[in-house]
Design a binder for these strands. Structure first.
Length: 256
DNA sequence: ATGGTTGCTTAGCAA
């Protein structure tokens, strides 16, 4: 089974690119983030024509996640479900062939010390609780998405500078590590040790051609799925050309 | 040094 994740930065702006990419790569499952659209507006029929069903946890203007799959999706769950008032669409679960799969869009946090920053740290703590209460680290499970956190210095082009910012701040890294401590491995690091492999590059100042990026999009898997993981790749090609998303897809291949 | 780019929505915010 091939599972991919991609922050598309608006499905309205990116529909043609996403569909061309699905036809090219043919993943079984694609988790999308920042679709920035409500469910009724999502181009579900167009993806259906390519052989993909779509589940959508949508929101107007901001956030929003979705999952497209060529295989049947079951057990659809939306949000953290912890009873806290939360208007932000950031989490969607499905089950595909016995694997629980989530599309995750963690809060960015904007600036350290802001209300959005505190929301980011709390949201990751709420996700940890959500996993404790609804998941099992001994079952195959994959959390796929834009975590807005680079885990280590080798995931950041300029770690000294970025340590003061929300994407690589020690508190954000600790919050992500707390999620992983529930029983998750970073699938990319099962297969790659090298520094300088990124999934996001700022649109500004030629960051992509200079490779001034961060690795903030991750596929996190439980042990039973880690043992089935054959390959994980970042598709830099999808970040090239006209009107790209600012993120590249991450693609993981699992044995049946 | 608060720049610069994109998207949504239409001037300002979020990333």
């Amino acid at each position: 089974m091939i599972i991919a994740t991609w922050n598309v930065n608006s499905i309205r702006a990116r529909a043609q690119r996403v569909m061309a990419w699905l036809q090219l790569r043919r993943p079984d499952v694609l988790c999308m983030q920042e679709i920035k659209i409500e469910e009724v507006e999502f181009p579900s029929l167009e993806l259906k024509a390519l052989g993909y069903d779509v589940m959508v946890e949508g929101q107007r203007t901001y956030n929003g996640v979705a999952i497209a799959s060529r295989l049947p999706m079951r057990e659809v769950r939306r949000g953290l479900g912890d009873g806290e008032a939360d208007a932000q669409a950031r989490l969607l679960w499905v089950s595909v062939e016995g694997v629980r799969i989530a599309s995750v869009y963690a809060p960015n946090g904007q600036t350290v010390g802001s209300d959005k920053w505190r929301y980011k740290l709390r949201w990751l703590e709420r996700l940890r609780r959500h996993l404790e209460q609804t998941g099992d680290p001994q079952q195959p499970l994959a959390l796929c998405g834009d975590w807005n956190v680079a885990p280590e210095a080798r995931d950041v082009h300029d770690p000294v500078r970025w340590e003061k910012a929300v994407l690589f701040h020690p508190d954000a890294r600790a919050a992500l590590a707390r999620v992983c401590a529930w029983g998750l491995r970073d699938a990319y690091r099962l297969h790659h040790e090298e520094a300088g492999r990124y999934t996001w590059w700022d649109y500004r100042q030629l960051a992509f051609p200079k490779n001034l990026g961060l690795r903030i999009d991750h596929i996190l898997v439980t042990a039973p799925l880690a043992s089935r993981c054959q390959a994980v790749e970042i598709d830099r090609e999808a970040r090239k050309g006209k009107q790209p998303s600012d993120h590249a897809p991450v693609v993981a291949t699992f044995e049946p």
